[in-house]
């Protein structure tokens, strides 16, 4: 019983790390993903091709391999903590998936919207900024929620580079108490509650901002 209480409190200390990694990776992927999606749709041929190659290559690779490669890559250039390099590596991976989500959403905004915006005298960038993107982002919410849940689950993979998130902590406990079933089972339970609440929260967001057309 005491073990279980210890286990919970110990794992929950990793919860902050898990959530931190997830939020950094998601935000990072959000900004870069939208940028890449814009390059794919509106960029010149070279930029658009490069963005497409990035997306295709990253999406063909196991996320854990992307984390390893980027972790080593990043750590050769700048000296970051495993926490930050793990979060950024996961963010680079999520960028590829999010760029696909936003590209699809941008393309599904009716063409007349851009034409009407330009006809009002908006520059191309203003049309994208004020007319296309606000609609695309709303269209993207369901797919994006799914991505958020995936990044949350994938955040467990940064354990491979030594980030003390929940899985890493579960492993410590498992080694210490010699009860791996309970250690990993409780970790699974916390992840489940997390993804469950994330999904519910984003469902709410989706209903709240649903775009009627």
């Amino acid at each position: 019983m005491q073990d279980l209480a210890f286990l919970f409190s110990y794992l929950l200390q990793g919860l902050g790390v898990t959530i931190g990694v997830t939020i950094i990776a998601l935000s990072f992927g959000f900004v870069l993903g939208i940028g890449m999606a814009l390059l794919r749709v509106y960029g010149n041929k070279l930029a658009s091709t490069l963005a497409a190659i990035y997306s295709t290559v990253i999406r063909a690779l196991p996320v854990v391999l992307v984390i390893f490669i980027l972790y080593f890559g990043i750590s050769r250039i700048v000296d970051l903590s495993p926490f930050l390099s793990g979060a950024f590596a996961l963010g680079f991976a999520s960028t590829a998936y999010q760029s696909e989500i936003f590209r699809g959403a941008i393309l599904s905004v009716p063409q007349g919207q851009m034409i009407a915006a330009r006809a009002l005298g908006m520059s191309r960038w203003k049309s994208i900024r004020y007319i296309i993107l606000p609609q695309a982002i709303r269209i993207a919410i369901p797919a994006w929620s799914n991505e958020a849940a995936i990044v949350l689950k994938d955040s467990s993979l940064v354990y491979v580079i030594g980030v003390p998130e929940m899985l890493r902590r579960a492993e410590y406990v498992s080694a210490r108490t010699l009860e791996p079933f309970i250690a990993f089972g409780v970790a699974a339970l916390i992840y489940f509650i997390l993804t469950f609440t994330t999904n519910r929260g984003l469902d709410y967001l989706e209903r709240r901002y649903k775009l009627q057309m």
Binding site: P110, G112, Q113, I115, I131, Q212, M213
Partner: peptide, 8 residues
């Protein structure tokens, strides 16, 4: 425009 193109 014919099809309005209001910003949705």
């Amino acid at each position: 425009f014919q099809d309005f193109n209001l910003f949705n």
